[in-house]
Design a binder for these strands. Structure first.
Lengths: 344, 344
DNA sequence: ATGAAAGCGCTAACAG
DNA sequence: CTGTTAGCGCTTTCAT
């Protein structure tokens, strides 16, 4: 009923505990005969080594566990990233502990504390806006850390991000190229790094065309589809409504699409949407929409594997200066950005 | 540079190691004065308790870790489920180890072995088609197990599934109700439990309308969008092609939508799809398609939290007979299933 | 090739 | 209230 230990196996096989240890951990120096005896006892008792106890004693190899801390594991972007990290970890014989912060610094701290208390060898994290001073101890103790998706302001560690600003700039430039001059910006909280970067890209593009940023056309802090629909309605009620729109993440894009449907009244399905739109982040059925949705897309799998590789290099002993890897976005031109600006 | 231990803290605070243990683990029976001294030393050294060592000694409370083993963490369905399980775990102070099996029994075994070797208190798993005898040992040792999404044939444990058969039946009945008699079935490998259940539901519906199952209209084993497009093309080339189609999972539905676009030639965007279709699993933008996609939807969040609750009840000591929870699907009627059957 | 002893970091069970 | 002794399950080190 109880979990057998090496002692039990030793007794069953008529050898010393140490011999069992050698066999179970594949250490050379055991005669084939005794090894066979031990292996049989192992099978008979259904013995499995307790790796926690093992790691306690033998800290040379660490715990072969890493922690992954993301905003929200249910977000397809992070889910893809997580899978790719998990694959890399699995290949190397590591397990991964996973936790969502929900963008709450408090929860982030709890999750990370729970992970480091279990002696993870490394941490891949999507940092919240909070402070990360509490990580200094872990860092000094040798826990390797890599930030993904956004940098942690107060943490000098390897970081993997994409060029959000450039991506947004290209998106808005595309809209500009189709004659739009009143382009709305719909974004999540501005204090999220990716969002402020994308907003900067939006402004870059306007400025490059000699256009000012009209505060009436920019809406930050959209956290849900509902927020977005409200913002959209407000935009539509403006004396001079925008003719195009840049949406700063997938959730907002969803809200935009839903909101536009409302404008059409009953049976508006299939009617052209009233504005040109380009969104940050691709959506699974984007190309099947009417019109097909033009987006700036990131590659979460590449981001994840890059981060994992950095982390495992660190775990393997690399102590060089922190690296900052910036991946590029891909501009996927479909048709939703091509709707021409109406004549003035 | 090294990680401080209780011994270090004890020395720094001028007390015994045991006193530190009491303070750190909030055990009553320490004078406020000494507690303060200890706490200060803890802060000064940046001490954090090693929970692995702790769990080794104090096994009364287990390790407060559970394992989650899914097919593919990147699949939005499992990602949502994982998040919901993680939330339940977090609420209770548990961490979660996560692993994808990729539907390979070999990898499933590896992942589970790695988890049990680390003494997880419980396991929530989406079982592969493989055998699960290797779990017997863990079960006897007291590891609690809950199956999700599909049952493990050779494992008598709590299981949470949805009524796949009923869901499929309703979907196909809907198609039948619109006059279709040649309804195709597109599914993944038939030996996956959910798939055979859905196929059974498809047959149920046909039988209830006195219709035979035409083998030419059923395609199993579709593992990718490419497979699906091929199957779709073959179906279209039939002497008597189907007029409607039931797709047995979200991936296949994607392939179907893409495949239909091809049929239309260049610039077919927005053209009505040639067949009525209903799919199992909802898709994020399903309602924005033209026509909006009718689906059978499951609630991964509910599935996850149900499984988590079962697991934690077991971990808390419940030893009653294994439960089998079957959740219902929701039929989301939009328009893609309403395309009428053409006159003969 | 095998085993005995010590100890990883912590807590249970007793002392004082 | 505080400290001492043992020992969780395993590996290291050193004998034999």
């Amino acid at each position: 009923m109880k979990r057998p230990t090496m002692k039990d196996v030793a007794q069953a096989a008529g050898v010393s505990l140490m011999t069992v240890s050698r066999v179970v951990s594949q250490t050379p120096g055991v005669s084939p005969d005794t090894a066979a005896k031990v292996e049989q006892a192992v099978r008979r008792l259904g013995y499995q080594r307790n790796d926690n106890a093992r790691n306690l004693r033998q800290k040379r190899l660490g715990t072969s566990a890493i922690g992954l801390v993301v905003d929200d594991l249910a977000n397809p972007f992070y889910a893809l990233m997580a899978r790719s990290i998990e694959d890399e970890a699995h290949r190397r014989g590591y397990v991964v502990l996973v936790g969502s912060t929900n963008d709450e610094p408090r929860r982030e701290r709890d999750v990370i504390a729970a992970f480091t208390a279990r002696q993870v060898d490394g941490l891949i994290m999507v940092p919240t806006i909070g402070s990360h001073g509490f990580l200094r101890t872990a860092l000094e103790a040798g826990t390797q850390v890599v930030c993904v998706d956004r940098p942690a302001k107060d943490l000098d560690v390897d970081t993997v991000t994409v060029d959000n600003r450039d991506g947004a700039r290209r998106a808005v430039t595309h809209l500009l190229g189709h004659g739009h001059t009143r382009i709305a910006y719909l974004g999540d909280r501005h204090n999220i790094w990716t969002q402020s970067e994308r907003y900067a890209g939006y402004q870059d593009a306007l400025a490059a065309h000699g256009l000012p940023t009209d505060p009436a056309l920019v809406r930050h802090g959209l956290r849900s589809p509902v927020d977005t629909r409200l913002a959209l309605a407000a935009l539509g009620a403006l004396p001079e409504p925008p003719t195009a729109l840049f949406s700063s993440n997938d959730l907002i894009t969803q809200g935009v699409l839903d909101g536009m449907e409302d404008d059409g009244g009953p049976r508006s399905t299939g009617r052209p949407a009233p504005m040109a739109v380009v969104g940050f982040d691709d959506l699974p059925l984007a190309k099947r929409l009417d019109p097909p949705l033009t987006v700036v897309s990131q590659d979460p799998v590449a981001i994840g594997s890059t981060a994992a590789n950095l982390l495992f290099t660190r775990i393997a002993g690399d102590r060089s200066a922190p690296r900052n890897v910036v991946l590029l976005t891909r501009f996927v031109e479909r048709r939703s950005g091509e709707r021409p600006a109406p004549a003035p």
